[in-house]
Design a protein around this nucleic acid. Sequence first.
DNA 1: CTGAAAGCGCTTACAG
DNA 2: CTGAAAGCGCTTACAG
Lengths: 363, 363
Amino acid sequence: MSASRQRPKLTQIATLLGVSAATVSNALAGKGRVSEEMAERIRAKAAELGYMPSQAGRALRTGRSQVLGLVLPNIANPLFPQIAQAIEHAASDAGYGVLIADSRGDVATQTRAIEQLQDRGVDGIVIVPRRGTRIADIGSPVAVIDSPSTPGNTVSADHWQGGRLVAQHLLDLGHRNLLLIGNNPVSNVQNDRIGGMKSVLTGNAQFSVLWIEDHEARHGKGCILGLKEKAREGVTAFAAVSDLHALRALTELQGAGVRVPDDASVTGFDDLTWSTAITPALTTVHMDMATIAEQAVAALTALIEAAPPVSQKREHVGHLTTQTGKPVATATQKSVPMELILRQTSGPVPSKPTEIPPAGEKQ
Amino acid sequence: MSASRQRPKLTQIATLLGVSAATVSNALAGKGRVSEEMAERIRAKAAELGYMPSQAGRALRTGRSQVLGLVLPNIANPLFPQIAQAIEHAASDAGYGVLIADSRGDVATQTRAIEQLQDRGVDGIVIVPRRGTRIADIGSPVAVIDSPSTPGNTVSADHWQGGRLVAQHLLDLGHRNLLLIGNNPVSNVQNDRIGGMKSVLTGNAQFSVLWIEDHEARHGKGCILGLKEKAREGVTAFAAVSDLHALRALTELQGAGVRVPDDASVTGFDDLTWSTAITPALTTVHMDMATIAEQAVAALTALIEAAPPVSQKREHVGHLTTQTGKPVATATQKSVPMELILRQTSGPVPSKPTEIPPAGEKQ
DNA sequence: CTGAAAGCGCTTACAG
DNA sequence: CTGAAAGCGCTTACAG
């Protein structure tokens, strides 16, 4: 009944007001070349008609789509919601839309995904890269979200510091025998987190590291991690590099009759949605994705504005541009502090040696 | 070093070959108005230069952006990765990009999100709507992913049938006393799932329903669900309408010394990523998001093609269009069967009455 | 079978 | 302060 009248266009409001399209455009863009009085009338009329400029027209003319591409290693990744949400907001605040792409596992698909995004005319790309990605080969402005150990333009959480946080927390609770649980020793993120933990675990605390992929390579996918035995051997704290692994540890321990946090503590990383939905709720480390996303988008828009739009006649070629037209940008390296979230899976080290039930009739 | 030459444009390949832009355009579009020989040369040259048409130019001319909007109630939803991934692929296969938007909780934000998408010129919208959304008010082609109980153009999993699947499974295992766990009684999806379960639980099986929101309203957010007591009262199977609630049940039971699946069975819904990462792995019901997404995108592209592009001069106004230019579309109502995934949290009902440890020193 | 022309909706120098 | 004109890259009737 209401709504959905035909979308008004610039020229309509121009003729309605008896002015030129140029004036309307300038007024709406706030380019100041218009009398305040005229500008006001134009803005009023535009608002009245619910005018929104056509992206297509503007994009064609300016060479800018006002759209960013978001490339992720694997959309199915449980961290994806947090990242996508944060990027979407940051981008939206900066006047950009977000087009998604999925690397679907391999670097080849990632390359294709990036190309597709470019074919669709994105102004820049936010990427959480797969191992082995050559960022430099991407012909668009790029912001990388990874770990501070990644070279190049990067924004990320300070995973190392996050590691220190958990380890210190466990130390403070009296734990002196810990198992650090990771998945893959070649991940920068995981290595940083573990490295941070290790850096705190000096002196009289002992620890070892369990890499799940290695373990599964030997015992089969989805196998038991043998945490109950570890507990019986005296480990009182299990510190995983991700909530996913913490969940695995928690359920394995609980299923084996090891009580958390009474008999052993478990901690994770990432603060995934379900981490409060479990009993006991998971102690974890939270990354401030909102800030990370803002910084990534800010870095990206800076790059975009520095680079001349591709499809524009370059009247006077800038002094500070390389032959490819890419500005000589200094690499951004930002890292955002992580925050420890105290919940119920971590508690004081048991005073008396833990009594772990023996055998255990697992099916 | 290589790559990133200036993007070639249509006219470049035209002049290079000494033909008109029109011919190049026709050849590339396969419009047949070009000799096969010429077409071949043109295609070859285009491939050689890595030509990709400018979306902006094409969009401006055709009135079509080849982009779909994806609107979700809450990007942070754990189901989002599955949905986004599936939609992205289906859309990509159909030649569309996907722009994301976040409803961030309320209907008002959802409305704004939809408007933003429209301002960015999307050709259509895939929406997983919030309660109370008036789909009819959206001025663009829309495909809705929800439950079959939702009126209008809808594609969805057959949640009711999924419910039957789990309930029958538990019945087959000998369970006769079940607790169905839901969150919110006003959700169509959850009601369908529970309804399906109930429809199977006739005869000598007894059950009751626990709505978590109600329970939390009385006992506080994040409270204990009291499942151990239920178990002691004779419940042997806990069937949740989502993996999230199943996880909550599982950890609560495990933490209270109730062994799963030996003492009690637990089942979920959705097959979230972590459902194999827990011990024991979760028995759940999987939705075929790939198929759902394909159907949603297919329905959407059909609508898009039926509707005349907004910004086009409508030479001869079609016979079968309403005054708003929207085609009189018959409502699509498709539902995709769900699949039971047997894993370790469900097992035969215990032969002897379960011995649940009493007290329980929860912290 | 091929080309010349118009135009999609905007913005940006340039004149006045 | 305002307007006329050109042009972003494409596609689509229409002529030839």
